[in-house]
């Protein structure tokens, strides 16, 4: 039997990888993918809890479905923003978009 902690550690590492990508990649689309990775790691953690913890009554799985829905919405809106930004500034490199400094 695979222990619960194994799944959790895989989720934590996937989350860290996603964080790393989100922090260092310049391309906004890739940053998006990394955020999706982080969401997936959370899903993985939730589902493993749902399967392992006796008192959870499978709540984690329900949350996972909701997260998938929210993530889908986020992808739709986020990619639309990326498209809009690209049209306005002809680039998707995050470090060239520093309007917040002005």
């Amino acid at each position: 039997m695979i222990p619960l902690e194994a799944y959790l550690v895989v989720g934590a590492l996937l989350f860290a990888i996603g964080t790393y990508g989100a922090l260092v990649r310049r391309n906004a689309v890739v940053v998006f993918m990394c955020v999706e990775l982080m969401l997936n790691s959370v899903n993985l953690t939730l589902v493993s809890f749902a399967d392992y913890l006796p008192g959870a009554m499978g709540a984690g799985a329900g949350y996972a479905i909701l997260i998938i829905a929210v993530a889908a919405a986020e992808v739709a809106v986020g990619l639309a923003i990326v498209l809009a930004v690209f049209r306005a500034r002809r680039t998707v490199n995050v470090d060239e978009i520093n309007l917040m400094k002005r």
Binding site: M1, E5, A50, Y52, P54
Partner: peptide
């Protein structure tokens, strides 16, 4: 996550 004591756990609850 690894050091946390999760108590009596077993797969197949969900």
């Amino acid at each position: 996550l690894a050091i946390q004591d999760w108590g009596e756990v077993s797969p197949g609850q969900g």
